Amino acid sequence: MASTACIPSVPAPGDALGLRARARGALLGLAVGDAMGAPAENLKPSEIRARWGRITGYVADRPAGTDDTEYAIFSGLLLARHGSALTPAHVEAAWHELIADRAEGPFRGAGFSERGTLENLRRGLAAPISAQHRHAWSDGLAMRAAPHGVFAAGRPDEAARLAAIDGSVSHDGEGIHGGRAVAAGVAAAMAGAPVVTVVAAALAVVPDDSWTARSLRRAVTAAHLGERAVRAAVVIGGYPWTDLAPEAVALAFGAYAAADGDFEQAVLTAVNMGRDADTTAAVAGALAGATQGVDAIPGPWADAITPARGSCLPAMAGHHVLDVADLLTPPEDTGAREPRGPASDSYVLAPNNETETPA
């Protein structure tokens, strides 16, 4: 595995961006990619071209985030409460209180991995048994892993550890590997690491012989040839499932590498490759947003992102990704990492005085 020892724990002194700008870029970038990619989900590039030509911005009249954004908010708020002390029991309790034991929105728990998890939880199964369903290899953890990288800025191993704890309720195997890779990549980008180091950080936290690692290596090797080459290097033609974690994570990192970390190009490359476009663009947006900061996101794209509507998770309605980003990063004028924000009776926002959240 590649070494991550050269990644600084925080942005270097004099870094014009700082943690807050990178955190906001990462989570707003995730939401932008999700909203822009949603209409292209499950489509082939030829189908995208037939409908819209090349997508260069939002194609929906009212762009909005999907389950990707709402689950990322869910994980971010949970992490803001528990920090590095997060346990599978905390995650399981939050799934019950905020999702499984409540009425669901129209998405009914979202993807197949989430539906399988909710069915198991409602049957009384606990983690990790709750993750034993037919879609534990999906990208459902990868889509919500960016907050762990934001929290553990410059600490890819810690970000990957937290993502795996989060995923223990819903994923296994390649599904966990995909989430770990995304969390580690975002953590490296949060410290101002160059693209090649961000990729190395992701590869360092997954087994060398895993499907995720093989796909990721193929994607970034082909990146200099453009999006068609990236897609051809990763996608298994005719395979019906587009939410495979090894495929989606590799396409996202491939788009990020092909764009050399540029936010606009990373997101548009991911969107125009189709497949699970909301997730691939969300992950690419998180990586590039952490790399370039929130000001790299075009104003019209950023302005379209409103507080979550709760379409999938009603309990997340009203939460904005920028507020989550602020909760996961220390105030710029102090070094302390403390959850902050308005007082709330919500499980995830209530202060947790029993658990320390170290910097």
Rank of each mutant, 00 (worst) to 15 (best):
L203R: 04
L268H: 04
E264C: 07
S311P: 09
A304M: 00
V267K: 02
E247F: 05
L225I: 11
T242D: 08
R275W: 03
A201E: 09
V324T: 05
M316F: 02
R217D: 05
F263P: 04
G226L: 10
S215Q: 13
P339L: 03
A304V: 00
V234S: 01
R231F: 08
P298Y: 07
A308M: 12
R228K: 12
S215A: 13
P307V: 11
Y239G: 06
T291M: 15
A232L: 15
I236C: 14
G285M: 05
A202Y: 12
R337A: 11
L244F: 12
L287R: 06
W211Q: 09
A200W: 07
L251H: 07
L203A: 05
D262L: 02
G254V: 01
R228T: 12
W211P: 12
W301D: 08
G237P: 04
A317T: 13
A202L: 15
A317Q: 12
V234Q: 03
G261V: 02
H224C: 05
A286E: 05
G261N: 03
P246G: 09
H320I: 10
V283P: 06
A255S: 00
G335V: 14
V230R: 08
V205R: 03
V271S: 12
L251K: 06
G226E: 08
I297G: 11
P314L: 03
E264S: 06
A315H: 15
V271E: 11
V321I: 14
A252H: 09
M316R: 02
A252G: 04
I236Q: 13
I236Y: 14
A259V: 15
P339I: 03
A325V: 00
G289Y: 00
A277T: 11
P339N: 01
P331T: 11
A229S: 09
R337W: 14
A204R: 14
V235E: 00
A223V: 02
Q265R: 04
V205N: 06
A302Q: 12
A325Y: 01
A223S: 01
R231V: 07
D260G: 08
T212H: 03
V283G: 10
A219T: 06
E227A: 10
Y239Q: 07
A250H: 04
L225V: 11
T221W: 08
G335H: 15
V220W: 06
V220L: 09
R217W: 01
A288H: 01
H320E: 07
